[in-house]
């Protein structure tokens, strides 16, 4: 069983002298950096509720680099696949490759919610607020939306039931908003202890990984703050791209991907560049 309470203390500074070679600036993409930054939040032995896209790269890289015993499972029912080939949807037949078992949605959500497991979900969204609540449903009036998105899928369930979740977003003022148009997935709700008071025994957002940096949540207020900015991205630039006031005073620079991590992403995980683009 893993414990994420110390994740904020994860080293962000320059690697130790014997550490793998960091990649030079300009030799990797924002997407590769996101996958690596998120992958580093995964601990060996974590049980990961995976979506597709960059989240899938993160899980696949972490499993190959530092968390070989992390277990990935999908809401569709694929439990602990090899991820030999990259799935393009959570129902891609590749989520069944070499699994411990192939089941269905009920079985999978009973793993998300399992009280003896430390489950971490990867989620994306169209909008996020300062407490890590997510909108993946619509922009504008719900019954007559200006823009309609896919809807919850399993996101609300994972956000409600998992031990923690990590969010993937592109950074921008229209995505990091003061008020969501629709609250699809519960984060820290109104901050403080409001999530617990609403009836959630556990869970909540652990971190938000964007194309500019990594954000986390203050332990007491549960308000979002900037934890790390990527090399070449200023903390002020991140504040400017956030539609609510963001504390950037604690930010440090994230270590760039290592040559080893990049090689694994490019050659082993996504050789067809299906997600890397």
């Amino acid at each position: 069983m893993s414990d994420h309470s110390d994740s904020a203390a994860r080293p962000a500074g320059p690697p130790a002298p014997d550490a793998p070679q960091p990649a030079a600036p300009g030799t990797y993409s924002a997407r590769e950096m996101m996958a690596v930054a998120a992958g580093r939040l995964i601990k060996d032995g974590d049980v990961l509720f995976a979506g597709t896209g960059v989240a899938m790269l993160a899980a696949a890289v972490a499993k190959r680099v530092h968390a070989p015993r992390a277990i990935v499972f999908f809401e569709t029912g694929g439990i602990d696949p090899t991820l030999t080939e990259l799935p393009l949807a959570v129902a891609d037949p590749r989520v069944m490759d070499g699994t411990a078992m192939n089941s269905g949605l009920i079985e999978s959500f009973s793993i998300v919610a399992h009280r003896k497991l430390h489950t971490i979900a990867f989620l994306g969204a169209a909008q996020i607020d300062r407490y890590g609540n997510l909108n993946s449903t619509c922009i504008g009036d719900y019954r007559a939306p200006k823009v309609r998105f896919s809807g919850s899928g399993g996101a609300c369930d994972a956000g409600s039931l998992a031990s923690a979740f990590i969010v993937f977003m592109q950074h921008g003022r229209r995505k990091f908003v003061e008020t969501l148009d629709y609250l699809t997935t519960p984060g820290w709700l109104a901050g403080g202890d409001s999530r617990r008071r609403a009836g959630y025994a556990r869970g909540g957002p652990l971190a938000v990984v964007t194309d500019l940096g990594v954000l986390e949540f203050a332990p007491d207020t549960h308000e979002m703050y900037l934890h790390q900015h990527y090399a070449g991205v200023g903390p002020e630039q991140i504040a400017e791209n956030t539609g609510f006031e963001l504390d950037i005073s604690r930010a440090t620079e994230a270590a760039p991907p290592t040559e080893h991590e990049l090689r694994i992403i490019r050659h082993d995980v996504d050789p067809q560049r299906l997600i890397l683009g």
């Binding site: 959500f109 919610a113 449903t137 719900y142 019954r143 919850s152 609300c156 369930d157 409600s160 039931l161 629709y182 609250l183 699809t184 997935t185 519960p186 709700l189 609403a198 009836g199 959630y200 025994a201």
Partner: peptide, 16 residues
């Protein structure tokens, strides 16, 4: 279920 407490899945009905 407890999935969805305090979300708009609970607060908003699509059908009038």
């Amino acid at each position: 279920t407890r999935s969805g407490l305090s979300t708009d899945l609970v607060h908003r009905s699509g059908f009038s």
